[in-house]
């Protein structure tokens, strides 16, 4: 009197994969929140100086980067006497166009933000530690002339 028919073969039950994608999506959102899109590829060597009293910038969307350092390739535009390049967006700028390019850069960066965020826009100076101050001073002067007063000296964390 067998009520229960027994199958000869036991099949492993199929796993429900539906929630697997949810888990992966959670990963995805986590990474999207904590990371930034890699900006323009670097055209200059940039090793930040190390400091102890560094602060994190609050909003990454309100940061515009200015890179200063030795050019990676020989074809880049340099400032005289030809050892240092300034990179705005994704290209190095010519010495004679420095003033106008920096002005345009500040203008476009400000315009691409909402009106109430414009004052919070920070210009992060990512300057190589071996660069002489004369280049930094020139850029600072231009920033000041164009009323871009919030700046940041990018630096790495040093233990002590």
């Amino acid at each position: 009197m067998s009520r229960f028919k027994k199958n000869g073969k036991k099949e492993t039950p199929e796993l429900n994969m539906g929630s697997m994608s949810d888990i992966i999506f959670m990963f995805l959102f986590f990474f999207m929140v904590i990371t930034t899109m890699r900006e323009a590829s670097l055209k200059v060597h940039f090793t930040p100086p190390q400091a102890t009293e560094i602060q994190k910038l609050e909003k990454k969307s309100l940061v515009a980067n200015i890179y200063v350092g030795a050019p990676i390739s020989k074809n880049e535009n340099t400032l005289p006497p030809g050892e240092v390049s300034v990179q705005l967006n994704d290209q190095t700028i010519k010495a004679e166009e420095l003033v106008s390019d920096v002005r345009d850069f500040i203008g476009t960066e400000k315009e691409s933000r909402d009106a109430q965020d414009r004052d919070k826009l920070t210009f992060s100076l990512k300057v190589d530690k071996d660069v002489q101050m004369r280049y930094v001073n020139t850029i600072k002067q231009e920033l000041r002339k164009n009323n871009a007063l919030k700046i940041n000296y990018a630096a790495g964390k040093r233990a002590n």
Binding site: T36, A51, Q55, K56, L57, I151, Y153, A154
Partner: peptide, 13 residues
């Protein structure tokens, strides 16, 4: 993407 955060010494001109 890159994880490195923007950090440095903030200053006002």
């Amino acid at each position: 993407s890159s994880i490195n955060t923007e950090q440095g010494i903030p200053r006002k001109l």
